[in-house]
Structure formats: structure tokens, C-alpha cells
Amino acid sequence: MEFKENEPIYLQIAAHVCDQILLGKWAAEDKIPSVRDLAVSFQVNPNTVMRTYEQLQNQEVIYNKRGIGFFVTPDAVRKVKAQRKERFLQQDLPEFFHNLFLLEIDLEEIQQRYEAFKTENYESEIEQKP
């Protein structure tokens, strides 16, 4: 994973963990990688991953079984979606609309590009959904 300069690393790792949950790669009650294992895979200090896990625990996305590890909460998908949706609607969408307006991009072009994006990037996940 390539980290962005303008956002703390622990938040970027938290976003990655949440992505795994939303994509169904880590389901409710699944054990997630240990602090040490995730730190090694991202080549970061274990304290950074611990900070990530503490934040996700405070948001009730994961929980700790002492001595066993961290697990996805039963309600994690709903919580992550709600948090991300709120952020998107309050912060990202107004900027997106501003750019659409300034660049005179119509919604039909956005729809076509969105469908192409889903097909190119998430085809296997789309096929699995009921």
C-alpha cells in the first residue's frame, strides 16, 4: 500500500481495514490480522497499527478478545457504511458537484464512467451479490 502524505498513516490503514469489511473479505465475527502481522504487511511500526485498531474499536467496527485477537463486530458493515456515507455526503459530494458544474460534465457521462469503473474494478464482487 502506498501511503498518502496528507493523511495520517493509521487512518489510511483504518480505511483499508474498513474496505476489507465492506468488500466482504473480513466478515462479521472473523478474526482480523494481528497487530504485528498487519504492521509487517504494511511495513509500519506496530504502534501505528495498534492506534488504528484502537480507533476502530472505539467506533465499534472491531472488538478485542483478550489473548486471542481482534474480530469484526456483527454490526461493522452498517457502522462503516454510515460513517463513510456521512463523510461523503458532507465533505466529498459538494466538492464533486462543484467540479461537475465548473467542468460542465453531465450526469449521463458520470453514469457511464461509473458503470465502467464497477465492471473493471469490482466485477467479481458484483456477480456475487444477490
Rank of each mutant, 00 (worst) to 15 (best):
D30S: 09
D30G: 01
Q83L: 12
K129I: 09
E86Y: 03
E108R: 12
R113I: 13
V35R: 03
L56G: 05
A28S: 15
V35M: 08
K79Y: 05
V17I: 15
Q90N: 15
E29W: 13
Y53K: 01
Q111K: 14
M1A: 08
N99W: 12
I68L: 07
K31P: 00
N64P: 04
I126G: 06
V80S: 02
E104Q: 13
F117Y: 15
F117H: 11
M50E: 04
L103R: 15
Q128F: 11
I32V: 12
C18V: 06
F88D: 00
W26K: 12
P33T: 12
Y53R: 04
D19K: 15
E95C: 09
F71H: 08
R87V: 06
Q90G: 01
G69N: 07
I110S: 09
P33S: 09
H16K: 08
P130N: 08
D19F: 05
N64V: 06
F88M: 13
K118N: 06
F117K: 07
Q111R: 15
K118H: 06
N58W: 02
Q83S: 11
V40C: 05
Y53Q: 02
V44C: 01
L22G: 02
D37E: 13
N6V: 12
D92E: 13
V80L: 00
K65E: 10
D37W: 02
E104F: 01
F71T: 00
E54Y: 06
S34V: 13
E5H: 13
K85Q: 11
E123I: 04
F96A: 10
I105F: 06
N99C: 07
E104S: 10
P94D: 11
K4Y: 13
I32T: 09
V77E: 12
E29M: 09
G69W: 04
S124V: 13
Q112W: 11
T73Y: 03
E127F: 14
K129C: 00
S34F: 01
K65D: 04
E7T: 13
I21H: 06
A82D: 14
P94I: 10
D92C: 09
E54A: 02
P94K: 09
E5A: 14
E2I: 07
R36C: 03
N121A: 08
N47P: 00
V17A: 05
N121I: 02
Q20T: 10
K4W: 14
T73H: 03
F70W: 11
P33Q: 04
R113Y: 06
Q91C: 02
K118I: 12
E95H: 14
K79V: 14
Q111H: 07
P74C: 10
H16A: 00
